[in-house]
């Protein structure tokens, strides 16, 4: 690839390397990128230009998706700070948190067997959202204070909630499919 796509995502979108970013400004900039670079802009151009446009747009899309997601942005910031980890295999080392996670797993299992499973799952999902928001705030504080070790642990907790939220969603889907 000849095009310089090694650029830092934050720099690409004109942000400082902070966890808090202005989502509206991000979306606005993304639209301008798309308006200039998307392959549709090259429908009448040569194959070569279309190919380079695809590569460039793909890079911008990836950058946008990373910055837009609270979880991905956290992981990306840690990687930029040379904190390497595997979010799929590592878990938080906080013992109290681990206890909590077991409880939450149980709650998800139980929720689909209650009298009103849709409502129970909905409530659980709202609670998970709240917990995630708390962790997002915590990550921001820790990252700003350069406490990267704690920040990494918080990012792993966030990852756990992401997975659990997906699990709740799968339960909801399963229930709905039974209705079809």
């Amino acid at each position: 690839m000849n095009i310089d796509l090694t650029r830092n995502y934050f720099e690409l979108f004109g942000f400082a390397e902070n966890y808090a970013i202005d989502q509206e400004q991000l979306a606005e900039k993304y639209r301008i990128f798309q308006a200039e670079l998307h392959p549709d802009r090259f429908a009448n151009a040569s194959e070569q230009e279309r190919r380079i446009s695809v590569q460039t747009t793909a890079f911008v899309n990836e950058a946008y998706a990373t910055l837009k997601s609270d979880l991905k942005r956290a992981h990306y910031l840690l990687r930029l700070s040379n904190i390497e980890f595997n979010a799929d295999t590592e878990t938080s080392s906080d013992a109290e948190f681990l206890m909590q996670t077991m409880e939450l797993h149980e709650q998800v299992e139980k929720a689909s067997h209650t009298e009103q499973p849709f409502q129970s799952l909905q409530e659980l999902s709202l609670q998970l959202k709240q917990n995630q928001q708390d962790l997002i705030n915590q990550f921001e504080k820790e990252f700003n204070a350069h406490d990267l070790i704690s920040a990494k642990d918080t990012a792993l907790k966030l990852q756990f909630y992401e997975r659990l939220t997906n699990q709740v969603r799968k339960q909801q889907e399963k229930l709905e499919e039974e209705l079809l």
């Binding site: 720099e11 004109g14 670079l37 040569s46 070569q48 230009e49 380079i52």
Partner: peptide, 20 residues
């Protein structure tokens, strides 16, 4: 296309920079 690849890529890069 081989000869102009670097030039075309540079143009795309410049578009990126201008949006930045």
């Amino acid at each position: 296309e081989n000869e102009s690849e670097a030039f075309i890529a540079r143009r795309m890069n410049r578009s990126v920079q201008q949006v930045m």
